[in-house]
Design a protein around this nucleic acid. Structure first.
Lengths: 150, 150
DNA sequence: CTGCTTTCATTGCATTTGCAACTAAATATT
DNA sequence: AATATTTAGTTGCAAATGCAATGAAAGCAG
């Protein structure tokens, strides 16, 4: 079995580490950029949807979002149709930072795909999407307490 | 630019999260399995090499390795040729756990590549290796304090 | 061989992370 | 309608993480 998981882990840690260093200049601490971009792109998204999008722990997200709110990057509003839900919105400050995050992320994508033909880049993206879809099923199951057999 | 970095981040977080849950049964806490497998496969490796292999912070690795030592999974020995270096060796306990970690990781690779032809799996692996090599250059540079331009 | 730089590793401290337990609202079951 | 289950989100607490500063050996320059 091809050890793709190791490669993916290395790539993810390296890029996340770089991003965290680069976003400190915007007063975004560890991991916060992940939430911020999604909220900017999906204003009004709820906590639980964000979790599924990013694949993080509920409680981890709660603290990250609390901090983003404290630091004026996002606003939580009550959902008029469902009192359980808290809708997440970007503030002006978030929208101002968003393009820089996008640019940095695009640069990292560019670095990652350096030397790739258009076609190879396309292939890489397609294969990764398929891998992600395969993996997220297991993630959701294990998170709910189910055991995997192997 | 294809947003491969997002896909990779999702996959990595999901799989890491699953592994951490599954390895708790062996008294391995967060992230420790990463170090353990590499030490089992490269007995006598030094701290710094391990960092490059895994792409983690120096200090993070130091604590993780301390804990692995305390819990009897690894042994640190002085390098007779270089007093700076500490050589890392797996204990019996580590070697006993190793096959389970490998099996779990292989299962995850299998899940990730579900529905992939032999050829597609090969392609995915090759592309990921290229991406990893591209990315690790930037990681090493940024870690040394250099700035990226974008 | 003396001072300077790099490499390898650890530690202090503040922050983030994550399991487990919890509240509360929505939805399903009887 | 009353009760049980699921869904959404938070919090306590213990542990992991990571920046900055430090120590100490190795390697290099003059």
């Amino acid at each position: 079995m091809k050890e793709i998981l190791r490669e993916i882990g290395m790539i993810a840690r390296a890029l996340d580490s770089i991003s965290n260093i680069e976003f400190k200049e915007f007063d975004l601490t560890k991991g916060q950029y992940l939430y911020l971009v999604r909220i900017c792109e999906n204003p009004g998204i709820i906590h639980a949807q964000l979790l599924e999008m990013i694949k993080v722990e509920r409680s981890t997200a709660t603290r990250a979002l609390q901090k983003l709110e404290t630091n004026g990057f996002i606003e939580k509003k009550d959902d008029p149709h469902n009192k359980k839900n808290k809708l997440l919105f970007p503030t002006e400050k978030a929208n101002a930072v968003y393009p820089f995050i996008k640019r940095e992320n695009a640069h990292s994508d560019g670095v990652a795909l350096h030397g790739f033909s258009e076609e190879e880049a396309e292939t890489a993206f397609d294969l990764l999407q398929r891998i992600r879809k395969n993996v997220e099923k297991d993630w959701e199951s294990v998170k709910k307490g189910n055991k995997r057999d192997y």
